[in-house]
Design a protein around this nucleic acid. Sequence first.
DNA 1: CACTCGTGGGG
DNA 2: TCCCCAAGAGT
Length: 291
Amino acid sequence: MTDIVPQLVDWYDREQRDLPWRRPDVSPWQVLVSEFMLQQTPVARVEPVWRAWVARWPTPSATAAASAADVLRAWGKLGYPRRAKRLHECATVIATDFGDAVPSDVETLLTLPGIGAYTARAVACFAYRRRVPVVDTNVRRVVARAVHGRADAAPSSSPRDLADVEALLPDEALAPKFSIALMELGATVCTARAPRCASCPLSVCAWRSRGFPASTAPARRVQRYAGTDRQVRGRLLDVLRGRDSPVTRAELDVVWLSDTAQRDRALDSLLVDGLVEQTADGRFALAGEGD
DNA sequence: CACTCGTGGGG
DNA sequence: TCCCCAAGAGT
């Protein structure tokens, strides 16, 4: 197969987006913060929150010193607030157990809260220039198309995905740029819907050479949102983010009147997740309010 | 492995 | 309008 490395790297040099966490003066911790925020949240929404976040809390220890409630407020409406809680926990572990320095090896990173297979490799590669395969949804889609000639990635099978990318990965000097370029291609050209193949820098693509066969994967279950517990949790948390002192149960109840059992279940799950706490007098607040 | 967990912009 | 889905992780 034609070597895609120079094609991809040259394209990235020309076309890369100017994202703040890619700049050379950004610390490993700040890269890690960006990776937490980018888990399932689009770049455009992350950017302003990341800027404010790293200006306010530039290090793990600074983040750990903040209250959980302030962390949840700074997270704002990025979604999946458990990520904010895990980021706070991650900062605490790094500050206390690792001398305020983000670990650089994948194995250690994987032991930290909120860091899984993707984020561990992204930090090792992008923050520490390690030659490790970085596999996210964009990379899996690009490899499925360009290498395997399929419209979509197969359901995630980590070992095989890692091996696929490992086979493409150049030497250490070029590996980080290659991996970020692969992700960038998937994010801006080889997109899930309406890929812009006319703008693709790859001279060889198995999917194209096979005539763009349609997806054979069974239609994915739609991820409904309206009416789910997640929506109720979102509304409850939105009330608490806007208040700096505990609120009564009645003030929370008004956000979801149609199904009181569901509302109770959602509030209970927020307590279980440690995102919300109940005061001695029975009112509710963001976890860690007042810490 | 299947499922849960927020939010909002674009096709 | 409605639906898809966006740099995943944990259970």
